[in-house]
Amino acid sequence: MAPVTMIEAIREALDEEMQRDPAVVLIGEDIGVYGGAFKATEGLLAKYGWERVIDTPISETAIIGAAVGMSYQGLRPVAEMQFIDFIACCFNQMVNFVAKSHYRWGGPVPMVVRGPCGGGVHGGPFHSQNPEMWFVHTPGLKVVCPSTAYDAKGLLKSAIRDNNPVLCLEHKFLYRRVKEELPAEDYTVPIGKLAVRRPGRDLTIATYGAMTLHVMDAAEELAKEGIEAEVLDLRTLAPLDREGIVESVRRTHKLLVVHEDVKTGGIAGEIAATVNEQAFEELDGPIQRVASLDAPVPFSPPLEERFLPQVADVTRAARELARY
């Protein structure tokens, strides 16, 4: 098997799920004839037809609304946000209709919303955001954010088969940068389980999405200095694998959380609170955070570089914490 990129892995997941289950339909802007802005759905219209690959007007609220409606019919729609930033346009549908449906009146919403998130590609303030916490803060939604092609495919498949609404945040920086061979057979990656990307004894670095690459690079550097960092790829933010995080902290006794989302209100705060509640006695140092600046994502390369966490920021924070 030839190695596939993350975007190819996502396309494979959609294709295989559509083949497996005729209840799976796609809806979004420019996903049909054009194949999607990032080509995630390329070729699927030709294969599955106009009824299953639905090009819509520029109407995010209607896209999500129609997907909810189709899911009430027992279908499993996958809605694409061309850029995840545009999910703000249908925020009400997401947090009030989709998220609360099952809780309020037992109306399950087996739908997926997927789209490219994240910066580092000079997309500017409206094509680079990381809106995960808007939705992690909304009970009823699940939020996944893969960092590998394997996970992107496996998590998307799990999301499609899940009876709950799942938001798949695909980091566009990774779309064509990560590549790996995937199993020939059908597989899924469970929602709500982190992956230990690198074992270590000196500190735990928890991260997700594109930051996983930075953190792995940082861990490599740290190892040369004799600091063994355990790297956790969270993979899912809601429901958060609290147990997995606490377990790692029990091994390393130190925790650094790295995310591309802005610092204030990011998942690091929630993780720190959880460890404080569940494993305070285990800590040999203060929980540290490396995150983006509390600012909109700026456009010009030097500004964006300053905005985003860099490998050096991670190593610096890790060294200080290891010394503590």
Binding site: V25, E51, R52, I54, S59, T61, A62, I63, I64, G65, A66, A67, V68, G69, M70, S71, Y72, Q73, G74, L75, P77, N92, Q93, N96, F97, K100, S101, R104, W105, G107
Partner: peptide, 25 residues
């Protein structure tokens, strides 16, 4: 019967989707 929410207008796309889904089936 689909439950409404308090935010007005949202049922229009939702019931459009129910209609599209039903037609598809």
């Amino acid at each position: 019967v689909v439950s409404p929410i308090s935010m007005l207008g949202d049922l229009i796309p939702v019931m459009t989707g129910v209609a599209m889904g039903g037609r598809y089936l």
